[in-house]
Structures are given as structure tokens and as C-alpha cells.
Nucleic acid binder design. Sequence first.
DNA 1: ACAGGCATGTAAATAGTTACATGATTCG
DNA 2: CGAATCATGTAACTATTTACATGCCTGT
Lengths: 182, 182
Amino acid sequence: MEVLSPTAYVILGMVRGEPRSGYEIKAMVDETTRFFWAASYGQIYPELKRLSEAGLLAGVDSPTGGRKRTVYEITADGEEELKAWLRQPPQTYEMREEGLLKLFFADALPREEAVEIVRSMRAHRLAANAQLRAMEPFAAEKDDPFPLLVLRGGLEFTEWFADWCRRMEEQILAAVPEKRSS
Amino acid sequence: MEVLSPTAYVILGMVRGEPRSGYEIKAMVDETTRFFWAASYGQIYPELKRLSEAGLLAGVDSPTGGRKRTVYEITADGEEELKAWLRQPPQTYEMREEGLLKLFFADALPREEAVEIVRSMRAHRLAANAQLRAMEPFAAEKDDPFPLLVLRGGLEFTEWFADWCRRMEEQILAAVPEKRSS
DNA sequence: ACAGGCATGTAAATAGTTACATGATTCG
DNA sequence: CGAATCATGTAACTATTTACATGCCTGT
């Protein structure tokens, strides 16, 4: 069994339980996992084809009205592949946080400009928090408890991060001495 | 002024203050920003060439003993470019956290296996915390306060995350009911 | 009639990692 | 002398985003 691309598993997971089209998978990803695992059409459609060829998914024609449409359902092999992956310890722990990089180099700016960095970061996290907040009722009414658990983790994380930014703002202005020549 | 690649700025930031070789930049990144902004040789060396051609860096031969070596120092234009970038609000806020994706789909596993996911995540964050802890004294003795500030943010983040995992472990075992057919 | 959403896909560009190749120097 | 580290680089691969193209259906 060859190794699948990272995006393959988000697809397998999304169609488990109920068959979905590429378009629906993309929409679900954007509503749910995008904060920690994104996927674009450019990945999803080719991957659906590969997974079907590998026998892990099966495409079923299922037009809505006259509009043609293919939904993909997971096969027994696909379900096994998904579970085997779920049992492996996670490998990917990546963060690309431009704000932290800027803050790391912020000594190059005068303090009043340096605090702008943490203000931007804070605004971003508060906006993300509000988005998650708006999704919470929908996740809460579902049968599967894990998406809600993860969403509440996101809520807590964005709150922690926003608060850290607030404290850093104070700290930079209060305690960090200005450099002689920046 | 054309837009630079994302990696360009980490290089500009790393050579500001004192000139460094590609090898040293890579080592610094691995010691400091890698938790939120990584870079590989395959990005660094070609980028050093491009930045020199663009006049934002200047390469200076500076062999150590008989071993040839080029360090790059930032030019006035490079300094301006770096500061202009620092003044822009951060654009990139990405996370790719395989553990959260697995947890999101964990309903496919029995509960005893689902908790293994948060246990792995917790172990990972505790290990990261220990690494940051070991770096703290070195950051603390530097003149520039921002790297230390960012590092302490990382310390707090990994602690929060590890604690969240611990609480999720309890919660999954205690409150989340087992499904009829998983 | 037109806007907006549903639906599928691809091409091109950009980003990034991994592995490899090469060779010098330093330290034990 | 051999291992580790310093040092520079490239090729191949993998991953991912963005933009574009197409066209149908539904509601106003």
C-alpha cells in the first residue's frame, strides 16, 4: 500500500459517514478544518480521481436536478486506510505565523511601531474567534462530538493568543527599553 | 520594487545587525524561528543570490582559516525593505496540525484509541516546551528583547496546548459517549 | 434576464523539502 | 586517521495556491 498524500486523508475523513462531491468537500473543509488543515480545488479534484483509482473511494453519479454531479463514497479499503492513518502518531506540526516573525525582528522598529505588530495579531485572532463562535451552534447539534471538541479548542486557543498579544502590547510599551539607534 | 519571497525577509532579518553566511543563517533559523517560520538550504542559498543581485544584500568574502566562506551584510536598501515589510500587517497565519485533523475524525475510532491522539499531541508539545526551555538562557542574555519575548510566548503556548490535551484526554474518557457502531 | 451558487476541472506559478554531491577544516 | 562540523550548492520531488475556464440551475 503506497503512501497517500497528506490531503488524501482529509478527503477520506470528510466522505466517511456520508458520500460527498468535491465541491461539498471543499465547502466542509472551509467551514471546519481550514484553521489547521486547508485544501484547495487544485488538490481535491485530482486526489478524488487518484483515490477512486486506488479503490479507496467509489464515485457515484448523483445529479441534483439536471445538473450533473459525482459524489464519492468511502470503500471498505478506504475505511481501513483512514483508520490505519488515525492510529499513527501525528507527524506534521507546522506553523507559519508571519506576525511572530515580525515580532522577532521588531527591534528594527521604534517601539510605537513594534506594538502595531501585536495589535494586528490580536485583531486577527479576535476575528478568528468570532468566526469560530458563529460556527459553534452548528457543531453542537451534531451527533459526532469530536468536531465540537476541536472547535472549542480553537476558541480557547484564539482567546489565549489574543490575550497574550494584549499583554505583550503592555509589556513592550512599559518595560522594553527603547534602543539608542534604531 | 518587486515583491520578495516570504523567505527573503527571514534572511534580511537574520543578517541585520551582523553579517552571516548561508550556513549560519540556516543554523540561526533552526535555533530560533523554526517553530513558526522554517527555511531550508534549498531556499536560503538561491535567495541569498537573488537578494545580492537586487542590491538588498552584499556578499563579502570572509574565510575562516583556509575555508572559503561568504558572509552577507544588509545594505541601506535592504534595511529599508525590511522595515517596510515590518510595518505591513502580517498576512500569513497558517497552521498544519495533523493531530487536530485526526482528532476531528476520531469518531471513526474506539475511545481508547481516540485518546492516543491527544496523548501524542501532548507529548509533542511537552518536548517542544523542553527545547524552548533549554534555549531561554541564551535568549535572555542578549541585548535584543524581542526574541526572548517570542520565545516566552512559545513556552506559554506549548504549556497551554499540553494542558488542553490533558483536559481533552480526561474529557474523552469521561464524558464523550461511545458510539453504537464504530 | 441576471446574479449567485453549484459543480468540475486544469495550468501555471510558487513554495518548500529532501537528498545528494562536494570538499575543507577541526578535534579527539 | 576518522568523525563531526563548516560550507555551498543543486536536482528532483512534493505540495499548494491562484487564477482561469466552463456551464448549468435556481431564485428574483
